[in-house]
Simulated assay, not measured.
Amino acid sequence: MIVRKGMGRAKSLLALLMVLLFSFATYNLIAMIMEHKADGLELSNRKLMRSNSKFHVAVTATDAAYNQWQCRIMYYWYKKVKDMPGSEMGKFTRILHSGRADQLMDEIPTFVVDPLPDGLDKGYIVLNRPWAFVQWLEKADIQEEYILMAEPDHIFVNPLPNLAYESQPAAYPFFYIKPAQNEKIIRKFYPEEKGPVTNIDPIGNSPVIIKKSLMEEIAPTWVNVSLIMKDDPDTDKAFGWVLEMYAYAVASALHGVKHNLRKDFMLQPPWDLNVEDRFIIHYTYGCDYNLKGVLTYGKIGEWRFDKRSYLMGPPPKNLPLPPPGVPESVVRLVKMVNEATANIPEWESINRS
């Protein structure tokens, strides 16, 4: 009898346990279905909000040899990664603000715009960039809903997705753009009634992925702020070569635009040591090393790669690779330059100033 009672209790407990387990499993299944539906609805809503997530790659440039060879390398790597999995890159345009065609028109898709009137840039040629974008946005037939503002010394090292979302563009945060530390100057262009200086992102205009309609609003303000900043001696002295970057950051804030700051957007050798999952190599800094692989920044190294060594014409093919111990980012940069120069037709017979 005791055994039977124990068996009966065990059966009852087992039945109860099975009911509970069944109920729990059913609950989890329903929860999973509901979550899946919610995810699907969110994805559907995103697709409705972003009917075309591709972005147009736009780079401003002059017809100088220094800009030309960089654009050729950039366009080579754009074509290599454009159709790779994960890429949402659309068409490519070199916005040529020299006011006339050059010898790369058949090689690189190009839209010619006018430079600023003589003397207006005061020798600071970068001021032509916002003016070039204004003209291009007004006159060109741009099919994509988004735009990537890029520069000639950018190399696409990984397929680039659209990092922007609706009215929030994506941008790379620069450590040397410090609006809060320059509040006295910033307030000349961003009055207190607009809000705190922290509304201004620590960015430049490139790299930025932004909705075309939003860029059409910001670009004229960017032109005006750039010119006014350049005309102000204190601002010109304080901001120097990054003045136009500050101008874009301020112009965006004046329109109430905040950017999604993406450190993975770009890397800058020699300071960033590894490529990893970042998307663009920006080779603005010189890379100088001794033969032991030690950085000698500020002093010409026994091995070096510096774009400014090639102001008058393109670098030669098959540049020597860095010595052992040099960071992967620098090695990757030189290998990518070498691959491009080996495959671009008539590399050394064109674009010499």
Rank of each mutant, 00 (worst) to 15 (best):
N52L: 08
N52W: 03
K54L: 08
K54Q: 08
K54P: 00
H56R: 09
H56I: 07
H56M: 12
H56E: 12
V57E: 07
A58F: 14
V59E: 06
V59Q: 04
V59M: 11
V59K: 04
T60Y: 06
T60W: 07
A61N: 07
A61L: 06
T62K: 02
T62C: 01
T62E: 03
T62Q: 02
D63I: 13
D63Q: 10
D63A: 14
D63E: 12
A64R: 11
A64D: 14
A64N: 11
A64M: 12
A65M: 04
A65H: 01
A65D: 03
Y66H: 13
Y66I: 04
N67A: 07
N67Y: 15
N67P: 02
N67R: 03
N67V: 05
Q68P: 01
Q68E: 14
Q68G: 03
Q68A: 13
Q68N: 13
W69E: 06
W69R: 00
W69L: 03
Q70H: 03
Q70S: 05
Q70K: 08
Q70A: 09
Q70M: 14
Q70E: 11
C71S: 13
C71Y: 04
R72M: 11
R72E: 10
R72Q: 09
R72N: 09
I73Y: 08
I73K: 08
M74W: 10
M74Q: 15
M74A: 15
M74G: 14
M74C: 14
M74T: 15
Y75S: 09
Y75I: 10
Y75V: 10
Y75R: 10
Y75H: 15
Y75E: 13
Y76F: 13
Y76S: 03
Y76Q: 01
Y76V: 01
Y76K: 02
W77P: 11
W77E: 14
Y78N: 10
Y78L: 04
K79A: 05
K79L: 13
K80C: 04
K80G: 03
V81T: 13
V81E: 05
V81W: 03
V81K: 09
V81M: 12
K82H: 10
K82S: 12
K82N: 13
P85K: 00
P85Q: 01
P85T: 00
P85C: 00
P85M: 00
G86F: 00
G86R: 00
G86V: 00
S87C: 10
S87W: 04
S87V: 10
S87F: 05
S87M: 11
E88G: 12
E88I: 14
E88F: 09
